[in-house]
Design a protein around this nucleic acid. Structure first.
Lengths: 131, 131
DNA sequence: CCATCTGTTATATTACATGTATAACAGTTA
DNA sequence: TAACTGTTATACATGTAATATAACAGATGG
């Protein structure tokens, strides 16, 4: 999977790594149980420090997206993804709320906002044929 | 309008202030042209430093949500809200994309995600009768 | 056995963001 | 004149982000 970093972004590098790996899983580009590069090789590939990749992997592991298998290394969690917990829903609502409020302020109506979300949903899931 | 801060949140205080004021406008609790508290009084009310409020106001002003009128003080922009620009759309997509990808990972389908967004939309806009 | 890879941990350093504190300035208002 | 407004400047403390270097235990392949 191709990982592209924007070093000018306000988003921390480890957050960009987390986001892209999660999107890779969501899009099907990364299958359950599929191995991920080692912290050192990924760090070398994208040109950052080993600790930056390690922080991203640690977060993904804590949330249950990946597993560190003593033999197989780091893999996308083979037993499936974490469920929709209450704390996840709370976090999701807290992130969505200001985005929706801002859209309303700028004059977007319900249909327009839902259209944007649906478009992004399709964009992510329709990568599954591409690779 | 009631402003509540979570000092334990990972969100910066000035971001919480920005978000709540924008949601106040979106919900109609804050009308166009309506005055906002001075930096010093709001800082005193919520128990933070004057500069923290000033940073929130500066951001809101830069984005066109509020106006600093020499006589009237700080007011919600009387001439209307900023439009949906290309840079706003880019920012909005960049914020929504990882949220949607995470929801897909956890097994939410398109209808569920749209339902969450619609619920939050209704929750924000239906405050208009409440006050 | 040995060299090499794995994730993990520790320490140190640099840079930046956040938040507070204090002070001052110019303009407005009562 | 006194009190308020937004604004700016400076300084300080704290935490986060990212890098650099190093070491450790466990696993792997020659």
């Amino acid at each position: 999977m191709i990982i592209e970093l924007d070093l000018q972004s306000e988003l921390p590098i480890y957050t960009q790594l987390v986001n892209q790996i999660i999107e890779g899983i969501a899009s099907g580009q990364l299958q359950l149980g599929e191995p991920l590069p080692s912290v050192r090789s990924l760090a070398s590939d994208v040109g950052v420090n080993l600790h930056t990749v390690n922080k991203a992997y640690t977060l993904l592991k804590q949330e249950g997206y990946i597993q560190v298998h003593r033999q197989r290394g780091v893999v996308v969690h083979p037993d499936g993804m974490p469920p929709v917990t209450e704390s996840f829903s709370d976090k999701q609502h807290g992130e969505l709320r200001p985005i929706i409020a801002e859209a309303i302020c700028r004059g977007m109506d319900k249909a327009q906002i839902l259209g944007i979300v649906e478009g992004l949903y399709n964009e992510i899931t329709q990568k599954r044929e591409g690779n």
